[in-house]
Design a protein around this nucleic acid. Structure first.
Lengths: 297, 297
DNA sequence: ATGAAAGCGCTAACAT
DNA sequence: ATGTTAGCGCTTTCAT
């Protein structure tokens, strides 16, 4: 019998199966903003984790519109998805989908504002710490910080991590505090000028992201400073093109976003299986060393 | 009766519906490489077009691996998707999924090598033409071309479009032909040096993409040429960050990829409804004018 | 106009 | 070990 089934290329119809099993083997992937840089690697990691099992993901992009999100949510629930992963494009908390969503849900990158939901986030403070420790290990002690937009919680967290790591050595940032601005090269250039004015002998600059870091590298070179020998630079995000097209290439923090996506799926599966682990789950970052940072001597 | 149904928040189960209707209201979105720059906007456009109807998309990324693609294909067919959209990340033709896939299929960006399949591609020759016409309209006639990787068919098509537009005015590219290289800023810089050596009085440079264009702008400024007054530069792709962080900002070709995604969905729906339109469908591009190009005087 | 019944493709609980 | 049957939630046909 089985032989005959194989001959006829028989494939069971999942619709009929799920009708009986009360499980569809599908999950909703609900994202704010597909065009954003952070959602994609997370979704790749998630897709990767789904692939090994037999669950498929429905893709939905709300483009930052709450109404559209509601619409997609309704459609996904009507399709009886077994679970939901909500992928944010920025690090600030977002509103919970709410109690009436009676399906296991995990928030990735942008955590839910409800601490009883399951959220997976990047270790921002740890990133600041890792970057500082890397620079200290390279003999650098006069470190400036050109941060991004102060409105994002992650911006402050990264700075705080860097300050804490410096504080443990009795050190502080050049100028006593980080410089806050936006995520542009222009800000990287003006921030660098400000830091050089505050301490002409500074030997390292930490940047809120790689775009700022590129501006900083360019400004340092324009000011006659050699990178990385005189001043080392560390970025954040390991952004395509930016990290590798800058000369020298950027040493930068990689957030391991694929891993973050995989963990989100793992937590979702656990939740579906009744092993719910609410709260904030933190994914560690790592430093990618390239040409923009080096030992001092 | 209906009132009672509404009270109880009744929502029909699509599994049961599709069981009867022989339609699932789902479509497979099969991509080579989600991390690539081109697949994302196409999928956003596609997702947009799905949204208005009641069909949902399964997301599958094969990461350029044919085996993984086969696996995803099997899963999608087992799920009885009503159709398939295959999103490529480069412009070269790709092998058809084959005859045994008895589900309507549309290839986006990377066309199928089988002309009887339905494919949607970007108008590369048109892009070259539009860029040249823009420069000519600005009074520029000594135009060089720094192209990308010659291995990609699109690279040559863009050059050919530019040459054709010049030829109609009895003009030709500086040096008589385009310079082929790769997609890096480094190549943009060396290509620019080569063009300046060939014709120190050239007044415009066309680039294969925005990364090259940024290298060209930097090299021109380093050589003492004013951009856009002395030499105008036009890129391709309207790449995030690159197009707007370069100083001056880049005039560049936008491929209307979202529109391409939407058209792919439209063709898929038509195909599902029995209005199959095989062959190559071409989506036009448009020039985004920014600071790197301007009238000559 | 309303109601009853069969069937979509499968699984699981029966009976042989 | 095999064969039969009821039922998952819906739609559609047929009967009232």
């Amino acid at each position: 019998v089985r032989a005959a089934a194989a001959e006829l290329h028989f494939v069971p119809n999942p619709m009929a199966q799920s009708l009986h099993q009360h499980r569809t083997g599908t999950v909703g992937l609900l994202t704010n903003d597909l065009s954003g840089r952070f959602a994609i690697p997370i979704m790749i990691g998630a897709e990767d984790a789904f692939g090994v099992g037999q669950v498929s993901a429905f893709l939905c992009d709300s483009r930052g519109d709450a109404l559209r999100e509601q619409h997609h949510l309704r459609v996904l629930l009507a399709r009886r998805v077994d679970g939901l992963i909500v992928v944010g494009d920025n690090t600030n908390p977002r509103p919970s989908l709410g109690e009436e969503v009676n399906v296991p849900t995990v928030y990735a990158y942008s955590p839910s504002s409800d601490p009883d939901d399951i959220s997976v986030v990047s270790d921002n403070a740890g990133a600041g710490r890792i970057a500082v420790e890397h620079l200290l290990a390279n003999g650098r002690t006069r470190i400036g910080y050109i941060a991004g937009d102060i409105a994002l919680i992650a911006t402050g967290q990264r700075v705080d991590g860097a300050k804490a790591a410096l504080g443990e050595r009795g050190l502080e940032l050049v100028g006593g505090k980080a410089l806050f601005g936006n995520w542009s090269e222009e800000w990287g250039r003006t921030g660098t000028a400000a830091l050089l004015a505050a301490d002409p002998g500074l030997d390292a600059i930490l940047c809120g992201n790689d775009v700022i870091a590129r501006g900083a590298v360019d400004a340092l070179k324009a000011a006659g400073k050699e990178v990385p020998r005189e001043v080392s630079v560390v970025g954040h995000d390991n952004t395509d093109h930016y990290a590798t097209e800058t000369r020298p290439q950027l040493s930068t923090i990689d957030m391991n976003l694929k891993e973050l996506g995989r963990l989100a799926v793992q937590l979702l599966f656990d939740s579906i299986d009744g092993e719910r682990r609410p709260g904030l789950h933190v994914v560690g970052t790592r430093l990618i060393q390239r040409g923009s940072s080096a030992p001092k001597y």
